[in-house]
Amino acid sequence: MSHNPETKPVKPEDREPDDTMLMAFADEALPPETAAALAPRIAADPQLSTKVARFKADRALLRAAFDPVLEEPVPDRLVAAIRARAAAEPASPAPARRPALRAIEGGEGPGSAPPAPVATTRPIALRRRGLSFALAASLALLLGFTVGRLVPSSEPPAPTLSLAALVESEPVRALAEQGTSGESVALAGGATVLLLGTLERGPGRYCRELEVSGGPQPGLAILCRSAEGTWPVTALVALVPAEAPSGFAPAGGEIEHDPAEALREAVGSLRLLDREAEAAARARGWR
């Protein structure tokens, strides 16, 4: 980037966004106008959108990993230890802020106020909406980039591993290379892989979206064609088995995204091709 004294001063949103800036964008920590200016650039650049998707994914993963702790009952012995210690401490010389509450120890007697929940000033801790969806997206992304290493032949097939092995099998590769959306292939073990559609990641970069059903582990996968003509798994998500039909959608059902969409978001900006475009791309040998 040359420095031309006649140009206007470079605004932050005009610079090539670095990782810290992309992180701040993903964390929604940028000033609104900077974020608004940056958004179209990110959307137009698969590399930038992948980075942003990763920052979102790792945050979502951490939230999903540790937020359940909030729902756990606090162990009685922890509370007891704290109360015992509090009883042993002399009264604080600091002035009381307000009349003492006695709800916890005294039970719910008439007139007793509930303990003051101090944390309520930060609604983010209570905002559980979309958590499961976020986890689905994170998992898709995480597994998408590690599938190669997750398929050691010696280990017993954990659900995801078997799913990964399944979609990297030869019949599925052939389906991805030659299939038309709506076609499916039956695999040993009772699984069926259905070709859902073709996605375009950028000029001459095509991906196929697949659904695995009927086997031990249902799931969705996106395979993106490499320059060498292989179809490595780029993203993969295992779906919750049939006895839990609502899958990744939380009970509230507020989420408009489904796992398929989560999966696409994890890969980055993708365009769904119609049947003609799909046929044309296949006829060109996916180039």
Partner: peptide, 18 residues
Amino acid sequence: MEPNFTNELVAMLPRLRR
């Protein structure tokens, strides 16, 4: 110790644990 302070402490436990 002020029961108030202790109660607020206990109310914070879930977040501290996370």
